[in-house]
Write a protein that binds this DNA or RNA. Structure first.
Lengths: 339, 339
DNA sequence: TGGATCATTGTAAGCGCTTGCATTTGGTTG
DNA sequence: CAACCAAATGCAAGCGCTTACAATGATCCA
């Protein structure tokens, strides 16, 4: 394979200097239309593509932003990233994705790796992380936005929603349906402010109605179906068992539903179940899963907007809160008549 | 923010030349242990990270490989990529992911974008694509491996499985269960050799048993739940309706199951359903979906191995075929007694 | 002991691109 | 028509790193 054409080859063919070629590529308005035409022709003729490294080296920008998410295997993140990526692509910015698998150490590593690749900005999920990471980011002057979380007093840019009150809302709905024995399968709260906030909302709603929460009825489980099913089994084995099981996300919810069926019970007749996220899965299970709709696409788009502005050097601190909505589906019904 | 430390800063602090620093970072064995120690100390002290662009420019390698997949929203790809990424990471190689949404034009664009970012290698899904893309790849001398597809005579490296015979196997299983009126909801075959091959296997199995396939009983649908449900509705409206609906993947299968329930029918009593991929979704739906297990993790790992060797300059043409396996679950049962 | 060999380190030339500044061009103005 | 100005273009200095080659000193053997 012969070496790739360079800016210089293009310049020679077009009969201009490399500076002009560079400019017609990056700031088309600054060169005469006729000249630009010649350059474009040369580019096309040679099949020229700018060399990424050269560009990064000279301009100290990469037109790249990174994102570290917990996992691609939950569609909610996959979709939000899709939206983020599309919005960034419109501005000619590439998205680099890394996953942490909910492990703060891995997250920090991935942040470092992305910085090493010269990302101009970063999107991170949630607010809870080692201050070292925030320090690093500020020291390097790399702007970032937090997604999925939101606090009035968050010291950084964030695009999220109020996890606490969203969970409180769905819990209230369950209580309104008549349930009194309510359990929750939450995500692992360590280093996960969203999971923590959701538990908080759950507790708040119970407390507001003066409902008791037996300790064993709040289970933390990794966000997988199997873990959800296992946790639900434990809850269902209790006597009396809860009449409603609220889950920290839809995947746990699907697991819980499976456990219910496996035990020969059915939802919502014997036990009601709810999820969180409103991913496709919540409509794939039968009965459809009552859940909280999270506007993942809009979060992605908004985060992209912010990130782009930050990358341009604007020093802004914006906190965007999206509304969530409870999606009622048949998995939530009235509790079974007392025996 | 002060400028980031450079190789030169490290060299100065360690009292060596930049060449030595570069070497102790890249080929530690070529540097005396004592010297290396000083360098490492200096690196740590300054918090030095190599500049990606500089490195790429000087070495003309990026330690990056790209992958273009149809979508992140199907867990099968998400998981395979996860495995690919992990295996690459062990060799210090970063994975860049792009999605095409099953659109060949977009795929070509993404390939170009990744090349523009200087990827050392590429993983692509399937074999069917414009020869222009293959030309471009060969012209640039960028090695690549195809995933998900496999042919004995495939002219490129591939790590996949025989989609045709996998689908033939599951179809045979359905026939063995007693079904005679069998329909299929396939993926869109345009530019998708896997979808095409699966239909082929389906037809072959029917033909081997001399079963007829009414034209309307082979529907192509995008790989989404809604499309699957909609296609299934059409099939279920037929009279007599098929007793088994085989789907091109699990997402379509989940959609078909939903349509069945919505129509007041149930699987497998009234209609049997099968999927393809064996993602978690197939165990989330009730009844569990009979499907074909695709060894996505192993495909990812194997592709990574190959890719790494190719990036090292080995000129190999390997075709790796994995076995698939039919996972029988309750969604497949005997056909309802003839009326 | 002289010369060859080897391990280790240094020197310096780029890699392809951007960009501040200088220069040229072409048009405008008094 | 000279003087001036803005727009367009060219010049050339790096950006941070790798690496061929050279230099050095130590080691070894005849």
């Amino acid at each position: 394979m012969r070496p790739l054409p360079t800016l210089e080859d293009v310049a020679r063919l077009a009969g201009v200097s490399t500076a002009t070629v560079s400019r017609s590529l990056n700031e088309p308005d600054r060169v005469r239309a006729e000249t630009r035409g010649r350059v474009e022709q040369a580019v096309a003729h040679l099949g020229y593509t700018p060399h990424f490294g050269g560009r990064a080296l000279a301009s100290n920008r990469t037109n790249t932003v990174g994102a570290v998410i917990p996992t691609m295997e939950n569609a909610i993140f996959a979709r939000a990233l899709q939206a983020l990526q599309e919005a960034l692509a419109e501005a000619g910015v590439t998205l680099l994705v890394a996953t942490s698998n909910y492990d703060p150490v891995r997250e920090a590593e991935q942040v470092r790796a992305l910085l090493g690749r010269g990302v101009d900005g970063l999107a991170l999920i949630g607010e809870a992380r080692d201050s070292e990471v925030y320090d690093l980011l500020e020291r390097r002057g790399v702007p970032f936005v937090l997604m999925w979380s939101w606090r009035e007093t968050c010291p950084w840019c964030c695009v999220g929603f109020d996890n606490r009150s969203a969970m409180e809302a769905i819990t209230r709905r369950v209580i309104e349906a008549g349930h009194r024995r309510i359990a929750m399968i939450a995500g692992i709260t360590e280093c996960n402010d969203r999971a923590t906030a959701r538990i908080c909302g759950f507790r708040d709603a119970l407390a507001a109605t003066e409902l008791a929460l037996p300790e064993a009825w709040l289970i933390e489980a990794p966000y997988t179906m199997d873990a959800g099913a296992e946790a639900a089994e434990r809850l269902l084995a209790d006597d009396p068992r809860p009449t409603a099981i609220l889950c920290g996300n839809d995947v746990l919810g699907a697991g819980a539903m499976r456990a219910i069926v496996n035990r020969g019970l059915s939802a919502p007749q014997d036990v009601s179940v709810t999820g969180f996220d409103d991913i496709e899965l919540s409509r794939a299970v039968m009965p459809g899963l009552t859940t909280v709709h999270v506007p993942h696409r809009r979060m992605g788009q908004r985060a992209a907007q912010l990130l782009l502005r930050l990358c341009l050097g604007e020093a802004l601190l914006e906190r965007v809160a999206f509304q969530t909505e409870v999606m009622e589906r048949p998995s939530l019904g009235p509790p079974p008549a007392e025996r």
